[in-house]
Write a protein that binds this DNA or RNA. Structure first.
Lengths: 192, 192
DNA sequence: ATTATGATCTAGCGGCGCTAGATTGTCAAG
DNA sequence: CTTGACAATCTAGCGCCGCTAGATCATAAT
């Protein structure tokens, strides 16, 4: 029964083409340009076909967001690999901001756009959790309350990314802010 | 010529009613429910009238955002008043998060929705700058590089607000994260 | 060859932001 | 008091959106 398998494969490929098209258009022209009609033209099928793959438009955004979480996790792990302590912390911070600022539409999908992403959902939890773990790994040496410290460090990075993205803080001072943040975490432990 | 003045006053009142309606609907049903048609019904005028007050829908969101920045500034100043040092810092942090979390739609308008808000614009700069100053005031005692430190502290608060709002970090641990953040800033100076 | 079944398409609903052009109200000049 | 200009406001509609019901087509079993 290779036929059914081929069909399943073709279906999966088509689904991937939808997600890829959505991501490409978003990164090039913003999420406002990502419409069902436009995606239908892009994959050369009619609009209803998209609804046999995704419940609605938000679900497509969510699919892109999951790609983003996977790639962010990889980027953070790479940034930390081979390093420990303060160096790892700083490298992760730099990598996080570089990721957010060089993939604005992807980061939008992950954090600022309304999606159906349930953080407590079984199937997706792993992907979303993995990035958190990568941050936790480099924070751990510096804190007793690892979860709280990781949440705080992550939030600081996210805030720095968002405010720089929207032009509210000076891009030229990014390194200095990172340095300050890393030092704050390091010494907080030393004296906590 | 009291007539022209009366007309101007009525116009200003109508404009204020538009902004108030937008804000009320957004806070009650989300920004997706804030449509030009809906606002027109609310103020009992036809849709084109709205365009004699605002260039487009985004400009209405921006007007709400400016109200938000003014109110946030007041809230932060109140939180800092009569306090100095570490106490002021902590109180401001608590007030910032309370503001963001208790006015989600307002905070959305200020930070996550696309608006025409130019941060370098003459007319609005004062309102947007004022909140920054309020934060800077409580950060100053702890840092040499005030601007960089303020940007970082603000970013951390913003990140904490966003991640908690979107259910990505645990609401129950908010106080602990604030405590950690404040300590980090205090000791960063002491050893910087 | 015929029929059932699933995949895909055509066509359309209601709603959106926004605007051109008609209509109404207002007030000064004749 | 009438008239005509001007501003305020409305009606009607364009092109787009997300989404879906029902028709049509291809495929594979009888």
């Amino acid at each position: 029964m290779g036929i059914a398998e081929r069909k399943g494969r073709e279906r999966a490929e088509r689904e991937q083409r939808i997600v890829a098209a959505a991501r490409a258009i978003a990164e090039r022209e913003g999420w406002g340009a990502v419409t069902i009609r436009r995606l239908a033209v892009e994959i050369e099928y009619s609009q209803p076909v998209l609804y046999s793959h995704f419940e609605n438009r938000d679900a497509i955004v969510a699919a892109v967001a999951i790609e983003g979480f996977q790639e962010l996790t990889v980027a953070l792990r790479e940034a930390a690999s081979g390093l420990t302590g303060r160096g790892a912390l700083k490298n992760v911070a730099v990598a996080y901001l570089a990721f957010a600022l060089s993939h604005p539409a992807l980061y939008d999908a992950m954090f600022t756009l309304p999606t159906d992403l349930r953080f407590a959902e079984v199937g997706t939890r792993a992907e979303l959790r993995a990035g958190f773990e990568a941050i936790a790994a480099v924070v751990t040496p510096f804190c007793a309350e690892v979860e709280v410290a990781t949440e705080t460090f992550w939030a600081a990075l996210h805030g720095l990314a968002e405010l720089e993205r929207s032009g509210r803080i000076r891009p030229s001072k990014r390194d200095e802010r990172i340095t300050l943040l890393v030092r704050a975490i390091v010494v907080a432990k030393r004296s906590g």
